[in-house]
Design a protein around this nucleic acid. Structure first.
Lengths: 244, 244
DNA sequence: AAGTGGTCTAGACCACTAT
DNA sequence: TAGTGGTCTAGACCACTTT
């Protein structure tokens, strides 16, 4: 049986990680509930035979996992649950189009920017943009409807690479082509309109998620504004809090 | 003018943090776009006059910010955007009841567990539970409807402290009372039913978020199962990706 | 003064990749 | 062999809190 209360120097798992796990399991087992105070770093050094830097690294892991908090001169304490520490990932979202996904291009055309498009892409009204509509299906079942407006600039190759980035190869499977600096995302709960519900093959006014994105290039200017829509039934976000 | 390309040893900001910021700004400025490779750690040590441990710490920050990736024996590279790296928190949610919030207890009663309650709280059907309904209002406008089922155990003080934890004092403002081990959260997009829309003073079938929670004690047994409901109009989640 | 968290170093050692 | 990321140490130093 594996010893889970000592650090195995022959393990492939580094000492700082092992110690973080040991401490986390002890917290989960309720070992420090009297005041919630962990042994001091010096004590942990002696107890587990590691240097102070290694102990600190372990504590830092628990720290940014939101499991403990530290007070200089006082000690390290088990944190109670705080909703502000909770984070969700977009794994469930990207899982929607991981395998057997097919992308159907519904429409590509040049459109002149209206007030909203101009605001989002930070361009003048009536400037030409590329408007794209896509339907993503998983095993021939439509799961995602995507619309976006792209900056139209024939001289700038960022458009083509961005089109990849938005589709599977770029944004979702990764790669080292560094053409986008960053972006902002918004998640909303909406009701499907008639058009959307037809495309996603369900009843109108069904609840749905909308994930809106604005991506920017290294010149800090927007290159893409768009949104994914998926049925509420096809997606939910899960996470956990604490030391379960 | 502040020098942003050297480490200030007299600053209150530690060297590892300063270096991480320097590198992040250089990445944001597009400095490493040829191949996206950062200087080696040894080069960074010399350039900025810090030890290898300090450089590593800086790189680690960028690493878990999802900004760079490292390959052993090859180098450190600027990562392209990946949707899987995106995370969002519940700040916007907890903001809903930060100030001027009032909690109206709509109902508290003992109910016998049905199949679903029994499954969620891991108790036998017909076991008694405490059922609570609350309406949270901000400036006399209802924003959140909360329902939950609590384990009923007169001998166990966890119930009272958990009731605090779920309300403002515990889960949302924090504290060091360590009575809950952890929990699981789910975010869904739903349609308001008649009752919910009446309470939240809006039209039925409006889109809404449901945040479901199951909290567990240190014995690993559920102590609470419930959900918050809020109108889609009152809430959206925002986050960013990359080095904006 | 003693104990706490927190930063930092100079160098050793290892694993991997290029050449 | 030389360069890369990655772990670890033993101890110095600092800021803060408690006694």
């Amino acid at each position: 049986m594996k010893n889970t209360s000592e650090i195995d120097r022959d393990s492939f798992e580094p000492a700082y990680s092992q110690l973080a796990n040991i401490l986390r399991h002890q917290i989960a087992a309720g070992k420090f509930r009297e005041g919630g105070r962990l042994p001091s770093e010096a004590q942990l050094c002696k107890r587990y035979g590691v240097s102070s830097m290694t102990v600190r690294r372990s504590i830092n892991i628990l720290l940014d996992q939101g499991i403990v908090s530290t007070i200089r001169g006082k000690g390290t304490f088990v944190k109670s649950l705080k909703i502000d520490d909770v984070t969700f990932g977009l794994k469930e979202f990207s899982d929607l189009f991981k395998e057997d996904v097919s992308v159907k291009l519904l429409e590509v055309r040049i459109v002149s920017a209206d007030a909203e498009i101009g605001k989002q892409l930070e361009i003048d009204v009536d400037t030409k943009t590329i408007y794209i509509r896509r339907l993503l299906s998983n095993n021939s079942t439509p799961v995602l409807y995507h619309q976006e407006y792209l900056i139209y600039d024939p001289c700038n190759p960022i458009v083509e690479s961005e089109m990849e980035a938005i589709s599977l190869k770029g944004l979702f499977t990764g790669g080292e082509g560094t053409t986008l600096k960053g972006g902002e995302l918004i998640i909303e709960a909406i009701k499907l309109n008639k058009n959307e519900s037809q495309l996603l093959e369900c009843m109108p006014s069904e609840p749905a998620f909308r994930l809106t994105h604005v991506f920017k290039g290294f010149d800090d200017k927007p290159v893409s504004w768009g949104w994914f829509i998926c049925r509420g039934k096809d997606l939910c976000f899960r996470t956990s809090i604490g030391v379960l």
